[in-house]
């Protein structure tokens, strides 16, 4: 039993979130913030905000990925240890939303890093964000299972993860 088995056991009980705003209007951000507060209570699923990318399992990206924030997003994505799941929250994070056609952004998170869960809405309700996070936990567990089957003994170190970077 390697370290990855322990991680597989751990992530489904307590996934830690990292929230990164890549150019959102704050609408999605306050709904993500609302989704981690007592009325919706995600701590019953063990969900908690992580202070650093190196502690995180799930990255919640809001916003349309401006050109300046895209480099930081890639760097943060690389710093998260495998297995990791990306959740794109809001219309802007999916396709650029109302800002489509502007000069300063990439119109969508999936142009920069691979995305696993899309949550539509402008902004999505906190219930929808919570549902998306629970789906992300399932994907996280699948990814950990796959890594165990492939015989990966430990999660990759910082900066070593194989990412598909297109921009």
């Amino acid at each position: 039993m390697g370290l990855i088995s322990v991680i597989r056991w751990g992530v489904k009980r307590s996934p830690w979130l990292l929230h990164f705003n890549t150019g959102a209007c704050n609408g999605c951000d306050i709904e993500v913030l609302a989704a981690i507060t007592p009325l919706y209570d995600p701590e019953r699923y063990g969900v908690k905000l992580a202070p650093s990318p190196r502690h995180a399992d799930i990255i919640v990206v809001t916003g349309l990925v401006t050109k300046k924030a895209a480099e930081r997003l890639k760097r943060i994505y690389d710093q998260i240890p495998e297995p990791k799941v990306v959740v794109a929250v809001g219309a802007c994070a999916i396709s650029g939303g109302v800002f489509q056609g502007s000069y300063s952004h990439y119109s969508g998170v999936d142009r920069v890093i691979p995305v696993d869960v899309y949550i539509p809405g402008c902004p999505p309700r906190p219930d929808a964000i919570l549902k998306g996070i629970i789906r992300a936990v399932e994907i996280l567990e699948e990814k950990a299972k796959k890594m165990e089957e492939l015989g990966v003994s430990s999660p990759s170190r910082v900066g070593e993860s194989a990412t598909t970077q297109t921009s």
Binding site: N21, T22, G23, A24, G63, L64, T66, K68, A69, R72, F99, G101, S102, Y103, S104, H105
Partner: peptide, 11 residues
Amino acid sequence: SGYNHRGIEWL
């Protein structure tokens, strides 16, 4: 600053 510039006036 500049991480959040979306070009709203331009749009």
